[in-house]
């Protein structure tokens, strides 16, 4: 079983890296990009976890390590 975690900065948290990417897109001719927000994808290969519990387990992983919930949101997909 696999899980995919998306981690994104909360709305309102400044993302200077995303802003730099936006500028670079403009510099190579991609105009019309109003904003860029950069995040992370973490893929987990799960073993020995009941499918029914998998989502809750991965949420716990996010709360305790994978995301910093002060500044980041996360979503969990069980694949």
């Amino acid at each position: 079983m696999h899980a995919r975690v998306h981690i994104t900065l909360k709305p309102g948290v400044l993302d200077p890296q995303g802003e730099a990417v936006r500028h670079a897109l403009g510099a190579i001719g991609f105009n019309g990009v109003n904003g860029v927000r950069q995040g992370k994808v973490i893929d987990l290969d799960l073993h020995g976890i009941e499918p029914a519990q998998a989502e809750e387990q991965v949420r716990q992983m996010c709360e305790k390590l994978l995301a910093n919930t002060v500044i980041e949101n996360y979503t969990v997909e069980i694949l």
Binding site: P16, N68, V70
Partner: peptide
């Protein structure tokens, strides 16, 4: 200390990168 929760807040990438 912030990641441990002993102090509040977070430290982000410098605004000037």
């Amino acid at each position: 200390l912030l990641e441990t929760g002993l102090l509040p807040g977070a430290l982000l990438r410098n605004a000037g990168l």
